[in-house]
Design a protein around this nucleic acid. Structure first.
Length: 109
DNA sequence: GTCCTGACTCTTC
DNA sequence: TGAAGAGCCAGGA
């Protein structure tokens, strides 16, 4: 199944997130044209389970909090994946979020 | 075919 | 300053 819709665009952006970098739902939504569609990005992530190419663990909310960690099977799976890339996590929140933040509107454009 | 929910974000009280 | 409500889109029941 290959969704050629908003979802596909979200996956395309997420796939291009560099190693050791993270981005936010809002940043992706903004890049796609509608920052108000941040929820849609989260919903798209909900459907990305069948796509191993999509590093959903690199997508967090605007605070750098691992909101969707619970959807990774284990509450710590998402954190471990990020730590494996050199990103430090504390209290389910990314330490130095702004330093590892990747803005698709600037980097990808 | 209609209503509800969902891993968010921003604005206003 | 803190908390609550509204808005977006798509999928499932």
């Amino acid at each position: 199944m290959e969704p050629k819709s908003f979802f596909n665009d979200v996956y395309d952006v997420v796939r291009q997130i560099p190693f050791g970098r993270v981005t936010s739902y809002g940043a992706i939504a903004l890049f796609l044209g509608s920052k108000l569609s941040a929820r849609m990005v989260g919903w798209a992530m909900n459907a990305c389970h069948g796509m191993p190419d999509v590093p959903a663990h690199r997508v967090v909310n605007r605070d750098g909090v691992l909101s969707g960690k619970h959807f990774f099977g284990s509450p710590t799976a998402m954190q471990e994946l990020l730590e494996a890339e050199g990103i430090r996590i504390e209290n389910d929140k990314i330490v130095g979020f702004k330093k590892v933040f990747w803005n698709p509107s600037e980097e990808l454009l």
